[in-house]
Nucleic acid binder design. Structure first.
Length: 633
RNA sequence: GGUCCCGUAGUUCAAUGGAUAGAAUAGGAGUUUCCUAAACUCUAGAUACAAGUUCGAUUCUUGUCGGGACCA
């Protein structure tokens, strides 16, 4: 039971006793007192001043007097400033709290609540390696799953692998054209990077071939697009381009038209045609194509698994788009029967969401093939049948906000009981200072490269400090790993998921200040004390607390409330911000007060318990973020 | 054209409608015979703009400007 949830009912009781007014604890605002005022917790009085027809000053005094008289062991003093009642909690309360919980190795853990949750995250395409954006997705998904587990949910972690489609066919076609039978093994390249290199080759080939076609367009030679149904449109675009490029003031418009022409040219390159044929062959179950597809996907998975292992990401179940891309057609029938969907004259099926502020949305093409939303309906249903979830969390970038809104809405309209449990954990893109990362411009920050770079920085920095000369090479490697990933995960998770964030590769990631390594360092420092002497069990003799001691205990007491908030809001950043605050406060405490050489034996025991509890809370909080903490660094 | 998200110190991030808007970093000034200086202390610096609701607005509403995404 947290201190705030202890205090609120007492205040509510006081209001009933003094004024015979029924004000629920949930309607009270109780927060930490600002450091410039005396007191620990503050009740905001304004909100019920009107209802009780009293001045804030009188209210505060009467409530304060009542609380002090009724609960003398808990409250010691109070003061009223403007509309705020500042309450001081007794030192003995905090000392009892510390003594009873300092050695809890799993602070904040709650008993199972019987609720089942699915968290779907990562969801990469299988044509190239993971990048920084995937890392944000993975760190968020893994952490939210861990937070929910700790707060009592039964969690299943899933990924959907986008293993089919034009993107993987590009890599396949490029390997067939340029691979000469090379393999990751024969070249010594990490397998997912190997496949990604062919994707880049494919893109470059398309670009080169398209440039030639565009040149011919401009010379009025349209032989490349004889078979293209859009030939007329291309002709029109050409005319428009000539018209615009004749005027200097229309340069931007001309460039736009030129881009459209380039897109047409891309479609008509020899390479794209090969790729399209490959996709068709795949759909027809052509044995050669399927074998090639299996081989290249296998390489990618091998590489992914290595990266996942390195970053500590794992899944209970994988779904494959190649299995799910035909799902959902039964929903079309069901929706038509229920009158939720309607059929247009050309045979395509739609849902009208204009009454909900959205658009009309296609759910089945006129040729009878399904679209993404159809598959997603089917997959959501499959997952429910398998797991009977109360909550299904999708960790997907905010580009999909609209799509996910539509998904949930359609399921609601179809009367699916699980629709309300669908939650889109939407996160913003990771951008470079120059803007969005772009594959075609080669500005994508590769996950493996980034981690290696950070490990290098960690090792250089550590060697500079020269504090770990007695570490074995194995221990050193583990330490560098811990620090590098700690820095990276903390950097990403400390930001509110829904916000876009900027990553500057030039400046790399800092190890000082509001960072993972700082918190790891504080943990190592505490462990260094506790290796010399551990706190003795048994009641503490100290009766009074110094301000720094109080501050830390009060902060540590909030941990369970913080992880509950993080669980409810699906937001690990609340934990990151909190655990930094704990580490920073300990750092000041450590500088100002001696633990092992404390003034008295009683103070030493008190501070040992505070130290141990701080280490426990730091380790537990960092565990929820997927960050390890070292014993020494 | 329509819908949604975001605008806070030079920079990267905070702030359940609550008190004088917090950190970090970069800048300036200090701290090491003492449990790890990857540290600590001090200093300077910001709510895009305009109305409205409220005892009280960074937070809610509307509009303007700026950035981003999506839908056809």
């Amino acid at each position: 039971m947290s201190i705030v949830s202890t205090i609120k009912p007492l205040i509510s009781g006081a209001l009933t006793a003094i004024y015979h007014q029924d004000i629920q604890p949930a309607d009270l605002t109780v927060s930490l007192t600002k450091p410039e005022f005396e007191g620990d917790y503050t009740l905001v009085l304004f909100s019920f001043v009107k209802q009780l027809k009293k001045s804030p000053e009188a209210l505060g005094k009467e409530i304060g007097d009542y609380l002090l008289a009724q609960h003398p062991g808990l409250f010691t003093r109070f003061n009223v400033i403007k509309g705020f009642l500042n309450l001081s909690i007794s030192d003995s309360y905090w000392i009892d709290f510390l003594q009873s919980s300092y050695n809890n190795g799993e602070p904040g853990r709650l008993d199972a609540n019987g609720q089942r949750v699915i968290v779907e995250y990562s969801s990469p395409n299988t044509n190239k390696p993971l990048h920084l954006g995937h890392l944000r997705n993975n760190f968020l998904g893994w952490s939210v799953a861990q937070i929910l587990k700790t707060t009592g949910y039964t969690v299943t972690k899933t990924a959907i692998l986008n293993d089919r489609g034009i993107h993987i066919c590009k890599s396949m076609a490029a390997w067939e054209a340029f691979g000469n039978g090379d393999t990751p093994e024969s070249t010594g390249i990490k397998p997912d990077h190997f496949v990604g290199d062919y994707y880049v080759k494919a893109e470059n080939t398309i670009k080169e071939q398209a440039a030639i076609i565009v040149d011919r367009f401009l010379k009025n030679d349209l032989t490349d697009v004889e078979q293209d149904p859009d030939k007329k449109e291309i002709q029109q675009l050409l005319d428009k381009y000539r018209e615009l490029s004749a005027k200097t003031e229309a340069a931007a418009g001309a460039a736009k038209v030129l881009d459209q022409l380039k897109d047409h040219a891309r479609k008509n390159t020899a390479f794209m045609k090969t790729t399209q044929q490959m996709l068709l062959a795949w759909e027809m179950n052509d044995p050669h194509t399927r074998a090639l597809w299996n081989k290249m996907n296998g390489w990618v998975y091998e590489g992914f698994n290595e990266t996942y292992k390195k970053i500590g990401s794992d899944f209970d179940k994988n779904y494959f788009e190649s299995d799910t891309y035909l799902l959902g057609k039964e929903f079309v029938e069901e929706g038509l029967a229920k009158g939720v969907f309607y059929k247009k004259a050309d045979g395509s099926v739609w849902i009208d969401l204009t009454a909900d502020g959205l658009d009309e949305k296609l759910v089945l093409r006129k040729d009878g093939t399904s679209v993404y939303i159809t598959q997603d309906l089917g997959l959501a249903d499959n997952k429910y049948k398998e797991f009977r979830y109360d909550q299904s969390i999708y960790v997907i970038a905010d580009e999909q906000n609209y799509h996910m809104k539509v998904l949930k809405l359609i399921l609601e309209k179809l009367g699916k009981p699980y629709a309300k449990g669908i939650y889109h954990l939407s996160y913003g893109l990771v951008e470079l200072p120059s803007g969005r990362m772009k594959t075609r411009e080669g500005t994508v920050v590769d996950a493996d490269d980034l981690i290696e770079e950070l490990k290098k920085v960690a090792s250089e920095k550590t060697e500079e400090l020269g504090k770990v000369e007695d570490f074995s090479p194995g221990e050193l490697n583990e330490l560098y790993d811990t620090i590098a990933l700690g820095a990276l995960k903390f950097f990403i998770l400390r930001v509110d998921p829904k916000k876009r964030m900027v990553f500057n590769p030039e400046e790399s990631i800092d190890f000082h200040g509001f960072t993972g390594p700082f918190i790891q360092f504080i943990h190592a420092r505490i462990k260094s004390i506790l290796r010399k002497e551990k706190a003795m069990a048994g009641p503490l003799q100290t009766k009074d607390l110094l301000p720094m001691e109080r501050e830390l205990i009060i902060l540590l007491e909030q941990y369970p409330a913080v992880i509950l908030q993080a669980a409810n809001e699906h937001d690990p950043s609340a934990i990151a911000i909190y655990v930094y605050e704990v580490a920073k406060t300990f750092s000041s405490f450590y500088t100002a007060l001696k633990v092992l050489a404390a003034e008295t034996e009683e103070k030493k025991q008190l501070r040992l318990q505070i130290s141990e509890m701080t280490a426990n809370v730091i380790a537990a909080a960092m565990r929820l973020l997927g960050i390890r903490v070292p014993e020494r660094m």
